[in-house]
């Protein structure tokens, strides 16, 4: 079950139904922040991709969803964390079509296009952290 706290909503990602929970929670939180229409679908789609990567490559991890405010702009931040195998070559993993899982290889580069900000940190044998932000248009 997702846990709501002062620092946002934490969704444990351990199986494929958690992917749906994470993207639905992300959509609900984004709606509260003030996002509408296609932005909600965009945020939910990016979360779906990143959550699926956790299930596929790291087996388990968590996604934290939080409202953010910076320079009087409001938005949402999504942090996906796992202590799975990590990514040896991040630049390659960020390329369209690169996949070690024989899938489409669009999850990471696609999520970066969908969101306004995208950061990835990963260390082999330690894990992966993806941080994504979307800002409300003024």
């Amino acid at each position: 079950m997702p846990v709501m706290g002062d620092d946002g909503i934490t969704v444990t990602i351990a199986n494929e139904s958690d992917i749906v929970t994470a993207r639905q929670m992300g959509r609900a939180l984004s709606e509260q922040v003030g996002f509408q229409g296609s932005d909600l679908t965009i945020i939910a789609t990016a979360i779906s991709e990143i959550a699926r990567n956790i299930v596929t490559y790291a087996q388990r991890g968590e996604i934290v969803l939080r409202p953010v405010t910076a320079n009087s702009r409001r938005g949402v931040v999504v942090v996906a964390r796992d202590d799975g195998p990590g990514i040896p070559d991040i630049a390659r993993a960020m390329q369209d079509g690169y996949s070690t899982g024989k899938t489409l290889g669009l999850g990471l580069p696609g999520a970066r296009r969908l969101m306004d900000e995208f950061e990835i940190q990963s260390e082999v044998g330690v894990g992966t952290i993806v941080t994504m932000r979307k800002w409300l248009r003024r």
Partner: peptide, 12 residues
């Protein structure tokens, strides 16, 4: 339409 828009940005 919203879903199609997100698909295109994702590269699908």
């Amino acid at each position: 339409p919203d879903v199609a828009f997100a698909m295109i940005q994702l590269g699908l």
